[in-house]
Design a protein around this nucleic acid. Structure first.
Ligand code: FES
Ligand code: FES
Lengths: 132, 132
DNA sequence: ATAAATGATACTAAAGTAGTATCATTAAAC
DNA sequence: GTTTAATGATACTACTTTAGTATCATTTAT
């Protein structure tokens, strides 16, 4: 099981790359060179980050992408939410229906507690903190 | 993202059910009734638990399954390993290859640390502790 | 012999993840 | 004003994992 999918992982790299630049905007082609991420995939991903307000985008020649916020304000949990949905280690769906034992189930309690910890640890990680 | 898949979840329920019985062996049909898990799915799952040494099985009429160990010796991590493979929240595979940045990557460090915590918490949960 | 069980194994379906392709729109550069 | 290099929008394909089904062989109590 993975906590971070490819999308999120690539997004982190791209955002770190942008955070280290002080150019007004960086085109996808430059990032493809630097990060060796498949172009169409990176493009789609950056578009998503743009519509989500993480990036600003500039169309036309000499256009590209730039961070829309300070790297210390871009949280890993934002990216996870965008690309993977909410963090729910525990679903307990029972044949498409919410499980009737949810309130008493000890397994659920255990996993819920673990989930809380994981979220707590994830929620302090920002792009700034990943810059090294 | 899920920490526990359906297989593992069902296995926990089945094992808890068996732990509460003191019959020599319980046939699948009885468990299907009690747990409302699809029969062929439960069957396969119990067979797996049997070959993995978690359950004893008895063939022929009046046969069935029974715990092969004390419930306090059956660990949630065993079940996760059996049905989901090793817990690895962090893969960082870069286009089918192991990522070259593994040693320096801060994201990996963070996720590794979280994974360690999760494993620590999972590793103390046994069927006995889930019996309620 | 029969019936009720598991063993072994192959198959199908659904969902999530990863990646590609294409055409339209924009705006700087010439 | 035309060209060119960029993003916007959107649809599509492929792969992997998870979930679930089906079938026939074997065993054993009755
Ligand atoms: S059995 Fe459904 S929440 Fe655990
Ligand atoms: S970039 Fe590969 S381990 Fe993080």
């Amino acid at each position: 099981m993975k906590l971070i999918t490819r999308n999120t992982d690539y997004a982190v790299r791209a955002l770190c790359y942008l955070a280290r630049q002080d150019q007004k905007s960086v085109p996808v082609s430059e990032m493809v060179m630097a990060l060796k991420i498949p172009r169409p995939f990176l493009r789609k991903l950056l578009q998503t980050l743009s519509t989500e307000g993480i990036l600003d985008s500039f169309k036309g020649q000499a256009g590209g992408f730039a961070l829309a916020k300070n790297p210390s304000k871009i949280w890993l949990t934002d990216l996870i939410r965008i690309f993977q949905g909410t963090v729910e280690l525990n679903e307990c769906i029972f044949r498409k229906k919410i499980c009737p034992n949810r309130s008493t189930c000890k397994l659920k309690h255990e996993i819920d507690a673990i989930e809380k910890d994981v979220l707590k640890r994830l929620s302090v990680v920002s792009i700034a903190s990943l810059l090294s």
